[in-house]
Simulated assay, not measured.
Amino acid sequence: MAVHRVDTLLAPYVRLITFVGSALFVSIYVINFIRFLKDFDTFTKMMERFQLPCPRVMAAGGLLFMSAGSAFYLTGIPIWMLLGTVLLLMFLIASTFFGHYKPWMQSNDLNHFFMMLKNIGMCGHCLATVGFELSQTGAVPDADTVGRSLHEMLEAYWASFRPCSWILQSSGMVLFTAPFLFSCLHYTMDINQLVGMIREPGLGRCTARLCALLVVMLLLVSSFLYMSGVAILVEFGALGFLSFLLVSTYFSHLKPYLQSGEKIHYLHIQKNLSLAGGCVMVLGVAIFEGGRS
């Protein structure tokens, strides 16, 4: 009842919450679009290292996918948001394979493995978004109305995929938990590493071990709640993920980045912000469903 009351109070701000989440989710694409647009030659050389044909064309295509995908995604209009999500997903799959999977297979660098897991989580959010937005589309327009406008053509196209919406949404939510479940498994197998990280601010050993146990339980429980698909449980799962992301980003990446300036920490911050944006978006949807029920 208490959660229902909170959802009802927050219901008028759902649009703002989901927009903030959307902005956070696409922030990594916007930042990299600006960075690579300013230094297009570096982006082209990256395509050459990936051994892709026509590297300048591929680089220009990447910039187009990032910019158009982000712009469409931020509209919040189901038809155009679907198009933006697909563009971002295609770019994300390619960048994950060439930028992290192949280097990880060649060098066994765990940083690439962790980046790949976070990208899988972001892919999961894209799939879940596609599934949710497909369920918001209308019926397939009659043949006479198709072709009147690009909007109607897209509406007819996306509406034909509506039967797959539940599958896409469910599989996307499962994939989103990948980085959190792996972190849970990783910390469980090496709890002393997590205890050492928690002790850095000056906590005692017993307190640090208790906090480490709570972190592992938070990740495990939040993952199962998130995958349940039940609005109120998903809400608690997203809150758990968001809490973990905020704390881990600050202590594991922001502080080290400010001290050392290492680029790897900056990249992790970007991906964590994007994952946090996905959590905020899901919170907005869950609050809307909870306030309406």
Rank of each mutant, 00 (worst) to 15 (best):
C126W: 01
M116T: 04
M90N: 06
G61S: 02
H151I: 12
I93G: 10
I93M: 15
S95Q: 09
L117H: 03
F97V: 09
L134I: 07
G147K: 04
M115K: 09
P78E: 06
I79C: 09
T129V: 03
V140M: 10
S107H: 12
M90A: 14
N111E: 12
I77F: 11
G62R: 00
G121E: 00
T129H: 01
C126K: 01
L88C: 10
M105E: 14
G99N: 11
G124R: 01
L63Y: 02
F97T: 03
H112Y: 12
G124A: 02
F113G: 13
Q136S: 12
C123V: 03
L117Q: 06
H100I: 02
N108D: 12
L110R: 10
V130K: 00
F91K: 13
A94H: 12
L87P: 03
K102G: 03
V140W: 10
M116P: 02
S149N: 06
S70T: 09
M115R: 09
L110H: 08
L92F: 04
A143D: 15
L88A: 04
W80P: 02
V130A: 09
S135Q: 07
M66D: 07
Q136D: 07
F91S: 15
M105G: 05
S135V: 02
H125K: 01
H100G: 04
L87F: 13
S95H: 10
K102R: 14
G61L: 07
L74F: 11
T96R: 06
C123W: 00
L117N: 03
G84K: 07
T96E: 11
N119H: 15
L154W: 15
M122H: 00
F132V: 11
M66K: 09
A143E: 15
G62C: 01
L110Y: 09
T85D: 05
F65Q: 07
G62E: 04
G124H: 01
H112T: 03
L63N: 03
F113Y: 14
L82D: 07
F113A: 15
N111W: 05
V130R: 00
F97L: 11
L87R: 01
W80K: 03
T129P: 01
N111S: 10
I79L: 10
A128Q: 00
G62W: 00
F72C: 10
G147Q: 06
G61T: 06
F114N: 12
L89W: 09
H112M: 11
Q106P: 04
M153P: 07
T137G: 03
G62L: 01
M66A: 13
S135W: 05
N108R: 13
L63C: 07
M122W: 00
L117C: 08
D109P: 11
L63M: 08
M81C: 09
F72H: 02
T137N: 06
F65S: 11
Q106C: 05
F113E: 14
E152Y: 06
G61E: 04
D109R: 10
F132G: 13
F98T: 05
A128P: 00
I93A: 15
S67H: 04
